[in-house]
Design a protein around this nucleic acid. Structure first.
Lengths: 191, 191
DNA sequence: TACGATTCGGACTATCGGTCCGCTTGACGA
DNA sequence: TCGTCAAGCGGACCGATAGTCCGAATCGTA
């Protein structure tokens, strides 16, 4: 529990690595095309530093992802309606899913990288549990939905990064188009 | 166009590899834990043979998967209702998704392996296109569903192998339980 | 400035997907 | 039955990558 004073270079390196990784993942088409060596080199840091700070590849990706997520998370946890708390479930569920979709659209590559992330399924990541909880609770307020937990899983699955990637790249849909269709679909599930 | 007669040992080896790979993937918890060397060794075959026959790792997994899929595919393409053709969409969609879910439950590890398969997203695989087409066409017959193509993507996403794996292993749900909940969910989407 | 703890960094290892090429074997005509 | 030869085989080999390790460098502090 003792809060050790962090060394200045350690903090600086941590930021450098996060920035470099973010950049590299955003550029690269395939997450697997980004190696840890590349990240280390781009950050101007040794590989040992990378692994000591983040444990392994998955840990690094999660860290970058978490940093990126901050904004949306704040909006959901303490922001104004319809995304923030205190919104009736029927209005909040569509808003939540739209926000999640928008995030994935803006961070496609990074999201794919995370879902791809080797060790364990995407469902093991903390952020999944968080999203599922929020959506589930909002769904529970809608009385036409009988099984909020399962519906939450199913709805979130509809915006999985690789599906979105497929819709955009292969089927050539625009972000707005996808948002519209998802909105309709969510409406149908809400009854 | 000259039909060369295949050599007996080639055919035998092909079967041996498929059987060995099927076995290994079924046993292993993580698909990445199964190496090509292991498959080759288990099949009593050289690595060169493996790669000549199947091109690469993804090709091998797809081949095993395709072999396993035959039964369901036949049932959907030429079987009796409610799975087979000629069934009204409103009855066929639930049957299709239940069949897909049942298959994933029976072949969890293999399905995870395929979705994991490295080169390209799961959406690139031929079998995805096939499933999507069938479900989309069935959905198109249901007049309460306005966007059959998107709904098909979303519904199929609800039975993704890693989600099912999560529900079974982490949340401890039984196969029957999942089938029940999926059935309800599909009903809601159909309106 | 001196010192000890912390952090750095890149050489090193283990493993894996995939290639290559000399050797073997099966099919078939004579 | 035997000879021929292309198809097929297999495992040594390669390049790349995630992850480890430890002597060297650096920071905070007295």
């Amino acid at each position: 529990m003792t809060e050790r004073k962090a060394r200045a270079d350690a903090a600086r390196n941590r930021e450098a690595v996060l920035a470099a990784a973010d950049e590299l993942f955003a550029r690269s088409d395939s997450p697997r095309g980004v190696s840890m060596d590349q990240v280390a080199a781009a950050a101007g840091v040794g590989k040992g530093t990378l692994f000591r700070r983040f444990g392994d590849r998955t840990g690094l990706i999660r860290a970058v992802f978490t940093a990126r997520t901050e904004t949306v998370r704040a909006a959901v946890e303490t922001g104004p309606p319809p995304l923030g708390p205190g919104t009736p479930g029927r209005d909040r569920v569509p808003a939540l899913l739209d926000a999640l979709l928008a995030f994935k659209l803006d961070n496609r590559h990074l999201s794919v990288a995370l879902e791809d992330a080797g060790s364990g399924s995407p469902y093991a990541a903390a952020h999944y549990g968080w999203w599922h909880g929020v959506v589930r609770d909002a769904l529970a307020e809608v009385d036409t939905v009988s099984d909020a937990a399962f519906a939450a899983h199913a709805l979130i699955a509809a915006v999985r990064a690789d599906l979105i990637e497929h819709l955009v790249v292969v089927e050539g849909m625009s972000g707005e188009e996808i948002r519209g269709r998802l909105g309709e679909y969510v409406g149908k599930v809400l009854g």
